[in-house]
Design a protein around this nucleic acid. Structure first.
Length: 887
RNA sequence: GCCGCGGUGGCGGAACUGGUAUACGCGAAAGACUUAAAAUCUUUUGGGCUUAUGUCCGUGUGGGUUCGAGUCCCACCCGCGGCACCA
């Protein structure tokens, strides 16, 4: 019978499902293993090749863990809120709920066809009200603990569609759908205080096992930078302090942030962001207000992309006011320029053109003074150490005129810096910060690149934000004294007057049924159109109030799905069911795409930490959700080009499953190349692993035949069997180790080598072949199950697969290898002359140096190379190599 | 500009701690089986010179360290991914 994957794969998938052998059980007797993969977004395009790559890899690991005796949780679900579905709904006027249901059905069929050992009893979907009930609950906790606030933020606004766009929908400064210009528009948004957790999100990375590049990305994204905030006094043109109130918090001081406080003596002007409040607050003092207004409006017109190129540095001096450099006491001009942004630091900088490239470019353009206050240390040191060296003179030439061509941004020794002269950068920083603090002009400050998280979308297909706005409560709140407020209200209500949390018993707040999913012309969520839904009684005072109509972003559901799996029961969740959570959390191994290693990973870590802080996640689970995080490389189209619908090079795994079977697709995706790297899909190479499986099949059948005809014993005898046994042990070792390191490609290659050998063997013991099937089974579960049951069918009734006698290959213990059996007794000694391989000699393991030398030197080839020459040196590596250095 | 990853046959790739470069697979060529094709099996497959022996060259480029470098060091080139006027 030839290998027929279609027949056997369907059969086994049905049996596995019926017997429920992959259902996770909280078995206290066993160690647990929680393997997690990123759940898919059920798009209309179906599964793509990237999904099986990650899912097969984790499936292999989970299957191996089960065989090693762990109780394993390997769940799957659907991240089913999202823009593509909503956009499709707008176009076709179908409720996204219906489309999502259809897509999930397609994904489920596809995933099941690949034979993953998921616990399907725990499947979840983020758009299911039973699920988003708890997504909303989590939001309410954030609100109550003062981590959610409403504030005006700039959003992307398509001038043609008249709707707000997500960042992903803005491509090159234009709307992804219509190609029109996208501008920034201010809107009130719910924002989460993720920055409060910034330090912990960096520090706790020390205690988790993430790939280094993932850790780096997280750290860079948070972008912590230590520096100082410094207050510069602002005076009007008569050199008078603007107001006589000398409170440094007042507007007569301009606060800047810098990481190089040590260069303060070189600060020859200040620059503020175009939207800095100083402009509005000091309007009466500014002589060229009109010019500045014009500049600001010009900037808004310029495409943000062009500004970002950083080629042009433009700005306008604010006439009528001056700043005082607190170190030099000199009056310096203040500029407004678009190279300083309000989003970072204080929206104002002290410009040190001598030591900052941007300030330098700006100073050159507007003819501003450039002071050199730091001398490179290397220069000084190497001059002392080696005054005549060539590299040094080159360095000197470079540095003698560095002020004329560019700014020196490195560390060094302070010069022209008053009391900082002669200090090295780090010391100078300490000293100046101490000095600033003493004079109440500044202090050490930490800034983050990470911004607070805008958590609302003016969309339909997302979780409704469970808050109600009550105008009466707002008034009441404003008239209430601070102390009373504090005792009567939660932090969220104090922070956001008038906003009231939906009572927990009313959750979930389900999405209302509407017909038109386009956002309103004012940019409000389409939910605003559901008037009956919006109108609601205030849960606090019973007055007329309205619901929040914004929904949560697509990240909301994926923030806690790994917790949801652990507490899922019949598609219901109870977050207070901490017993199950305690058993499974944290996730032991999480694999996913590199594209999610910044946002999703950071967001979900933040939410987890918050839940941990408020006790929703028990202490025992620890402060981090994922113990280990790895990432797979992207699968590219043929020829190494990114797959995309527009290029028409998208590979549908379904086609390959149909043609070759799931085992072949699984094995190919593991074999195609290094797991963590981007790899092009090569349709014609798939045949290679398919051939391999066919040969496994044929061999399995012949082993069975032989067993039947001869009642073949499984004793291993003779040299051939000895070699086979060694190879088997080697293979068990290599495959096991490679799986742990996610080097699946070399694991498969080792199994191919093994097959190539056992095919040649005249006398293959069934026992050897069975072990091979077991280690192959996590990769190709269907074919190995079929063959395994076939071989065992003499002992067991083949028709008893569904009864209690049935023992799946996936329940067999992972084979052990014997290190002693791997060791060979002979090896090829590599003989080199002057580092070049000249001969190989079979030698017994453990041969002594003198013996090896004698053997090597008696070889005719080596004699040819060493004749008439003097052997200067002999390098000997035990059981490996001997090298003669000759002259 | 910054951070990260990578560059090895016709192609995907392998190579432990510096010790036989090109494992495994694809493709290609030749042969076997077949009326024929497909499938399968066997052999060959980095380049040059040479009759096979053999020998020289060869892991992006140029240097270096070493008995010995794909692997380590220095300088550079190219490709990919992410961030980007971060003060």
């Amino acid at each position: 019978m030839p290998y027929d994957p279609e027949k056997i794969e369907k059969k086994w998938q049905a049996i596995w499902e019926k017997t429920g052998i992959f259902h996770a059980k909280e078995n206290k007797e066993k160690k647990k293993f929680y393997g997690l993969v990123e759940f898919p977004y059920p798009s209309g395009d179906g599964l793509h090749t990237g999904h099986p790559r990650s899912y097969t890899a984790m499936d292999i690991i989970c299957r191996k863990r089960r065989m090693e005796g762990y109780s394993v949780l390997y769940p799957i679900g659907f991240d089913s809120f999202g823009l593509p579905t909503e956009n499709y709904a707008i176009k076709r006027k179908v409720n996204p709920k219906i489309i999502t249901k259809e897509n999930i059905a397609i994904f489920t069929r596809q995933l099941k066809s690949l034979g993953f050992s998921f616990d399907w009893s725990r499947v979840l979907s983020t758009s299911d009200p039973e699920y988003y009930k708890w997504t909303q609950w989590i939001f309410l906790q954030l609100f109550k603990h003062g981590l959610a606030y409403k504030a005006k933020e700039n959003i992307n606004w398509c001038t043609s569609c008249k709707i707000g766009l997500a960042n992903e929908e803005v491509v090159g400064g234009v709307c992804e759908r219509c190609g029109s210009e996208v501008i920034k528009k201010e809107r009130e948004q719910w924002i989460l205080k993720i920055t409060k957790y910034a330090d912990r999100l960096i520090d706790d990375l020390k205690n988790v096992d993430y790939l280094d590049r993932i850790k780096n990305q997280q750290i860079n994204w948070i972008g912590r930078s230590e520096g100082a905030s410094i207050k510069f006094e602002i005076r009007n043109q008569k050199s008078e302090t603007i107001s006589n109130n000398l409170n440094p918090n007042d507007q007569n001081y301009l606060e800047v942030f810098t990481t190089r406080a040590d260069t303060i003596f070189g600060a020859t002007f200040l620059v503020i962001a175009p939207d800095h409040s100083l402009i509005v607050n000091s309007e009466s003092l500014i002589e060229n207000y009109e010019e500045i207004e014009k500049y600001i409006s010009d900037i808004k017109k310029a495409s943000p992309r062009l500004v970002n190129l950083g080629l042009k540095k433009t700005g306008v001096e604010i006439k009528g006011i001056k700043a005082i450099n607190p170190a030099t006491k000199k009056e310096i001009p203040v500029f407004i320029a678009d190279y300083v942004s309000m989003d970072y630091g204080t929206g104002a900088i002290m410009a040190v053109p001598g030591h900052d490239t941007r300030d330098y470019a700006f100073a050159k353009r507007y003819n501003l003074p450039i002071e050199i206050v730091v001398k490179p240390t290397d220069d000084l040191k190497s001059e002392i150490r080696n005054p005549k060296s060539e590299t040094n003179s080159k360095f000197k030439i470079q540095n003698s005129n560095f002020a004329e061509s560019e700014a020196y941004e490195g560390d060094g020794i302070n010069i022209n810096s008053g009391f900082l002269n002669g200090l090295e950068t780090k010391e100078a920083q300490k000293k100046i910060i101490a000095w600033l603090k003493e004079n109440k002009l500044g202090d050490k400050t930490i800034n983050y690149h990470l911004r607070d998280w805008i958590f609302s979308r003016q969309r339909y297909w997302g979780e409704p934000i469970p808050l109600i706005f009550c105008p009466k409560c707002k008034k009441l709140m404003e008239n209430t004294k601070y102390e009373i407020r504090n005792t009567k209200h939660n932090e969220g209500e104090i922070l956001n007057p008038g906003w009231v949390a939906v009572p927990e018993k009313d959750l979930p707040i389900e999405l209302p049924e509407i017909k038109d999913f386009i956002p309103t012309k004012d940019g409000d969520s389409p939910l605003a159109k559901a008037k009956d839904w919006v109108k609601v009684k205030c849960p606090k005072c019973g007055c007329e109030a309205r619901r929040e109509t914004d929904v949560m972003p697509n990240w909301a559901g994926s923030n806690w799905y790994y917790i949801a799996y652990t507490i899922s029961e019949n598609s219901k969740f109870e977050i207070r069911n901490t017993k199950q959570m305690k058993y499974w959390t944290p996730v032991d191994w999480y694999n996913g795409g590199m594209e999610h290693t910044t946002l999703h990973l950071l967001y979900s870590r933040f939410i987890y930490k918050f839940l941990y802080d408020i006790g929703a996640v028990p202490r025992e689970c620890g402060p981090e959700p994922y113990k280990k995080r790895t990432a797979h490389g992207m699968i590219l189209g043929e020829g190494g080009i990114k797959m995309s619908k527009s290029k028409g090079n998208v590979i549908n795994p379904d086609d390959y499953v149909k043609e070759y079977g799931a085992d072949t697709v699984r094995l190919y995706e593991m074999f195609m190349g290094p797991f963590d790297q981007a790899i092009p899909w090569e349709g014609k190479s798939v045949i290679g692993v398919n051939r391999f499986l066919s040969r496994v099949w044929d061999l399995g059948e012949s082993v069975k035949l032989k067993a039947k005809s001869e009642k073949h014993g499984s004793k291993i005898q003779g040299q051939e069997s000895k070699d086979l046994e060694r190879l088997l042990n080697q293979t068990i070792k290599k495959v096991g180790e490679d799986i742990e390191q996610m080097k699946f490609n070399t694991a498969v290659s080792q199994m191919m080598i093994f097959l190539n050998e056992i095919e040649k063997a005249k006398d293959l013991a069934q026992e050897v072949f069975e072990k091979f099937l077991i280690i192959l089974s996590p990769f190709a579960p269907h074919i190995t199950e079929e063959l395994y049951q076939l071989l065992k069918s003499e002992i067991r009734n083949p028709k008893s697969e569904t009864n209690s006698n049935f023992r799946s290959i996936s329940e067999e213990p992972w084979p052990k290898y014997d290190e002693k059996l791997i060791k060979k007794d002979v090896f090829s000694l590599v003989v080199q002359v002057n580092g070049k391989v000249r001969e190989m000699i079979e030698c017994p393991i453990g041969i002594s140096e003198s013996e090896a030398k004698e053997k090597a030197l008696s070889s005719s080839k080596i004699i040819g190379w060493t004749r008439d020459k003097e052997i200067v040196k002999v390098i000997y590596v035990q059981d490996k190599l001997i090298n003669f250095v000759v002259k």
